[in-house]
Design a protein around this nucleic acid. Sequence first.
DNA 1: TCAAAAGTGTTTGTACTACACCCATGC
DNA 2: GCATGGGTGTAGTACAAACACTTTTGA
Lengths: 225, 225
Amino acid sequence: MKPFHSYQNPSLAVDLVVFGYHENTLSVLLLNRKEEPFKDQWVLPGAFVQMQETFQDSCSRVLQTKLGMDKLYLEQLYTFDAPERDPRGRAIAVAYYALVNPSKFEIVAGTMANDVQWFDIHKIPALGFDHKEIFTTACQRLRSKILYFPVGFELLNDLFTMTELHELYECILGISIDRRNFRRKILDAEFIINTGKKREGLQNRHPELYKFNQKLKQNNFQLNI
Amino acid sequence: MKPFHSYQNPSLAVDLVVFGYHENTLSVLLLNRKEEPFKDQWVLPGAFVQMQETFQDSCSRVLQTKLGMDKLYLEQLYTFDAPERDPRGRAIAVAYYALVNPSKFEIVAGTMANDVQWFDIHKIPALGFDHKEIFTTACQRLRSKILYFPVGFELLNDLFTMTELHELYECILGISIDRRNFRRKILDAEFIINTGKKREGLQNRHPELYKFNQKLKQNNFQLNI
DNA sequence: TCAAAAGTGTTTGTACTACACCCATGC
DNA sequence: GCATGGGTGTAGTACAAACACTTTTGA
């Protein structure tokens, strides 16, 4: 058995769409490039895949070194292969998306970028490479995923109120959802568990606190919203 | 702007799960390897991605040269990156799945394989590499895709009867579906169009012939079966 | 006692399920 | 005329949509 020929292989990178939710706004993390190509433009964070690394490893490395984050919800999105997507040469991008609670982390620009910032997903600037397309794909995936898997909870605190969850769904889906029907459906789906605790110290009635149901039943629940 | 460093990059291949439907059986195309690793074992067809090729190009090349097929329904599935998946070294596989009407093609083993054959998806042999996992992923994707996109029609002739379509859905989903409800739902979804023609020369009542609706409405229809 | 947000239940309509009969054709 | 498969309709049920009142809290 021979090892691989020393073919030339396309370069291989992971690019990350990191979603964060804060104060009723869904945001994505962008960094401003210090170097050509696309110097001083905003792009998705990413890194070349090292020979011994899994994609997950590469993603963790990006999140850790560039952003000071780690151990997030991470899911492979799609692999982008347009030959002209990188002016430096043939480059394949395996896109992942991550969900973050920004209040748990503090972003750090690192040495490789001018700046790192959260952008409201409705107000993102022009992006370098084909990152606009990757971003759009990620938004679509998130919207469809949230309907059949309790994925949004990564964006919230461990304990959250029904209203917070409701607002998150409205924000991600971009529609308004009847509060009472939403409650019934999300409880029927058994995505969440009532902890019995309440959030204290508010002006109004103290809302019940829920948590994500770790042991959720496997049968592909479809949340018809 | 500098070109890429001469990093060593993982080798990059496409692997194809080619589904065919014939005589009420959903099959997958496997080839028997002539060389190590996994010599004389069955694997999914695949090829290394050339520097100037898109993944689609690579897939077409596989289908054309190894199988004598081309221009099929083709969709990217997932990118597999386990470091040990290929004993020759680090190799990334971008998996695609394809849908074929086997009666339109004749498979050819080519020079690279001992044999190429259709296998009933319920009776596939042990597969080399991580191809079992790729195959399983493809089956799941096909099952979920068929419920919200008229993807199955690629597996049938251009004109087909309602019964043929019904049997195809039962076969792919592995469940039995009420004939009359199926007809109503598939027509409501506007996946297909009645051509007004009938299939002649049968022993029994001549069934109406349908065709795939090219201009189907975009609003993500969910076929609740 | 008032304002603001949280919790709860009912009615209505639509869509899925289950099911049985008639029709067309070739032998 | 009969066997075989193809086409059609309806009653019951379950779930989603629409909607309003009561409760809790702090000020």
